[in-house]
């Protein structure tokens, strides 16, 4: 089974304001997008489990003209508080890389 990292040419994460993280998955091409963007492990329920957040707050946007899947979810704590480990959310995509589709 391919992993997320095998079917995307670029994956990134970033804060979307101080209260949200957003993930952008740029699939390798149209075929990869059509085959994998709707995979169960990229649906809100699985993302919620992976990032330990409430599934009802996970936003999920297929962007077909860019072969992109965009997923956004609330941060556990607002950006920059006492226990911050990733100020800009720029490393949060890494735990998605080895998810099997």
């Amino acid at each position: 089974m391919p992993k997320v990292n095998d079917v995307c040419r670029y994956i990134r994460s970033k804060n979307a304001g101080p209260f949200w993280i957003t993930l952008d998955l740029f699939f390798t091409d149209k075929e990869a997008y059509e085959e994998f963007a709707s995979a169960p492990h990229l649906q809100p329920k699985s993302i919620a489990a992976l990032y330990d957040v409430d599934a009802s707050l996970v936003k999920h946007f297929p962007v077909p003209n860019l072969n992109v899947l965009k997923i956004s979810f609330p941060r556990h704590a607002p950006q920059g508080g006492a226990m911050e480990r990733d100020m800009h959310g720029g490393q949060q995509y890494v735990r998605l890389l080895d998810v099997e589709l």
Binding site: T22, K59, K70
Partner: peptide
């Protein structure tokens, strides 16, 4: 077309 349209994704929770 790609660099411009992709910027709607950047630091936005909603691309549309």
């Amino acid at each position: 077309e790609n660099t411009v349209s992709a910027h709607m994704l950047y630091e936005n929770s909603d691309p549309f």
